[in-house]
Design a binder for these strands. Structure first.
Lengths: 219, 219
DNA sequence: GTCTAAATTTGATTTACATCAATTAACATG
DNA sequence: CATGTTAATTGATGTAAATCAAATTTAGAC
């Protein structure tokens, strides 16, 4: 299937709505009517679900190139909050138009399906992490994941700064902020990383990797 | 958009591949090439992801009317195992054909997107559960969820039998089988449920609901 | 720059759950 | 129906992480 000029125009049109958000701004709120998906151009977001009793769970940290808002398709309303963790730029993708266009462009359709499915796979990974790893392992996996994503975007995999607080990391990883802090300090003490407030230096990626997985059996 | 006779034929055709599975059979295995989604007609399945180090995490229990296999779209390969927990019947839905047809039928397209999104929402709920609930709350939420799904299918919400072992429940909920057993025994002692092996009687749905959520503050 | 509030670190203590261990009950198989 | 096998219960003990509590650092507001 070839793209006609009209197709290209429409695709171009589809992603033409750009918006800027400042640190702390909501991209959308839980309960808001679903209209669009959002492609992050620059910046950093978190998404969180709120339990009626006030508990909250961070469900993800999203960075440039990632799509958010997919949870809202099922009920035509957003089911979580998305909040900018730094000044960010976002492309709005009206979902109705995306569906329309993806009916004409099989490769776009396939792409959309892959993105939706990738989110499911990601969530399963976090379920594994939350359900069966210890605090140390979770945090190591978290740092490795960030490292890998920064690397993909052309930044250093060994040196980056965290956009989120210890509390937000803790919420995401199912542990308290004190445990996050202590565990990071431990990593530093054994020389795996340096951490000064939000600035992280990973000294040994393999060393962190060795932490993920159960304590090695010594036969 | 109206459905033509040809459309209806194709839709009918799409879901014509039925297969039977016995307790313990694999519907698919992690790593297998992705071809189809599967609609469960009757029976009960579990899905689990395996960590290379041998740890496993049950990611869901699926029953009649539910669709599984969506995680595989992203990489063209299944990322988890799906195993029948009782004798079951399943419709295979070749995904290429589903995509093709959903290009012609906007309502089918929308339906597919909703199903994919619903899985994401479900996973976020489990992340909340794993990340921020205590064992008691997780198990209460689990029983309520099963109850509600049985009710939707016309079965009693108060009386059903578990198809899965304590170990599988524990894996799903991020706790050990002993804790599952103990917690169920506690629920029984306080009169919320009766449980004899796999047979559950819920005596008070509101009572279980009260368990989900943090211990009530007494001012 | 100063001041205030928020975030982080670190320590002491508690606790929920895991682990280890043994018994009992349910299930499958010849 | 007897018998090996797996699943479930229950108890005793250990431990990872939560909680409670300061002290300290960092970031924002004025």
């Amino acid at each position: 299937m070839k793209l006609t000029d009209t197709d290209l125009e429409q695709l171009d049109d589809l992603i033409s709505l750009k918006h800027a958000y400042q640190r702390g701004d909501y991209l959308y709120r839980s309960g808001a009517k679903f209209q669009s998906l959002y492609a992050i151009r620059t910046g950093f977001f978190k998404t969180q679900v709120l339990h009626e009793d006030g508990r909250e769970q961070v469900t993800g940290f999203q960075m440039a190139g990632e799509i958010i808002g997919m949870d809202a398709i099922s009920s035509d309303a957003h089911t979580c909050d998305a909040i900018a963790l730094e000044d960010s730029e976002v492309c709005e993708i009206p979902f109705g138009r995306l569906e329309e266009l993806s009916r004409k462009l099989p490769s776009l359709q396939r792409h959309l399906h892959r993105i939706l499915s990738r989110e499911i796979v990601r969530d399963h990974g976090i379920m594994l992490l939350l359900g069966s790893m210890r605090a140390e392992e979770r945090l190591a996996a978290f740092l490795l994941n960030l490292s890998q994503r920064f690397a993909t975007r052309g930044y250093s995999p060994n040196s980056f700064h965290l956009r989120m607080t210890r509390q937000e990391i803790g919420s995401y990883l199912g542990m308290k902020l004190e445990t996050v802090s202590r565990t990071l300090s431990n990593f530093q003490e054994v020389g795996l990383i340096s951490i000064r407030n939000k600035a992280v230096e990973i000294h040994s990626l393999p060393g962190l990797q060795a932490f993920v997985g159960p304590p090695s059996k010594c036969p």
